[in-house]
């Protein structure tokens, strides 16, 4: 547990003032902020995604390009070192009996993520709404998380880059030497919007990606996961991934 300045001050103040201190009084007064200006994640949620591969086609990559625009993910033109938060994977049945399948693969935001487990600095962490995120301020670039992740969801930033011209200011651009990956567009979720890929998929008239809260039994994704057949990638590893697939 770390104690920041305010909690130390607060603790000291509380002990000194005891009951005399009115509950809710803050030692450093925060200005009034209008409710609309705070983007907050909601504890108790469990975000998840359901991808219907029968509605996903190999010629469409709307989700991938939307992600690159939203999150300022550059392409270096070096396939082995490019950063991919989400990518389209083509599947061909080895026995040639089933038709080829095309689907997006992204960070699975596992309930038991091995990347968080191995990170020495707690830079990879699980937020209280179930998102697996990277605190890049803390990342030392040891790459152990990339070794541990079975989904190849993570990329190291190999190149030093300058900010591209049209950037989305709401998402920081990148520093070389840290690891990054899909955030389920945490900044959008906190504002009550859907991830960029899901929105783009719907806009491209595919509607293959469904996003929602698994802890809410009435949400569409909960209902469909309950009624319809679905699967996750590598369930044998027991990581409880939260990107579900249908139609493979």
């Amino acid at each position: 547990m770390t104690m920041d300045r305010r909690s130390v001050l607060g603790l000291g103040g509380a002990i000194a003032a005891g009951v005399a201190l009115a509950p809710g009084l803050r030692l450093i007064a925060a200005p009034e902020t209008s409710p609309g200006s705070v983007a907050a994640s909601t504890p108790g949620k469990r975000w998840a995604m359901l991808i219907d591969t029968s509605r996903c086609s190999s010629d469409c990559s709307a989700c991938v390009s939307a992600c690159r625009t939203e999150n300022n993910v550059p392409l270096f033109g070096d396939p082995e070192r490019d950063i991919h938060w989400i990518r389209k994977v083509e599947l061909r049945d080895q026995s040639q009996r089933k038709a080829p399948v095309s689907l997006p693969v992204l960070c699975n935001h596992c309930e038991q993520p091995p990347c968080v487990h191995v990170c020495p600095t707690e830079a990879s962490f699980i937020r209280h709404d179930g998102l697996v995120l990277i605190d890049k301020h803390r990342c030392i670039g040891c790459r152990y998380c990339i070794i541990a992740c079975p989904y190849k969801a993570r990329s190291l930033v190999f190149y030093k880059t300058k900010p591209p011209k049209d950037t989305n200011p709401n998402v920081p651009i990148r520093a070389a030497g840290v690891v990054e990956k899909c955030t389920f567009c945490a900044h959008r979720l906190d504002e009550g919007k859907l991830p960029a890929c899901v929105e783009a998929c719907a806009k491209a008239d595919k509607g293959a990606m469904l996003f929602g809260d698994l802890n809410d039994p009435k949400s569409e994704i909960s209902q469909r996961l309950l009624k319809e057949k679905s699967q996750t990638i590598r369930p044998d590893l027991g990581l409880k991934p939260h990107v579900h697939y249908q139609g493979i």
Binding site: D4, T33, V38, A40, S41, H128, L133, D135, H137, H187
Partner: peptide, 24 residues
């Protein structure tokens, strides 16, 4: 500097981003 650092922890790790107090 401490203010920003504190905000950074709150924003990134706890998911509370006070827009009026961001870099932007």
């Amino acid at each position: 500097m401490d203010f920003l650092k504190h905000k950074r922890e709150e924003t990134v790790r706890e998911g509370v981003a006070v827009k009026s107090e961001s870099f932007l």
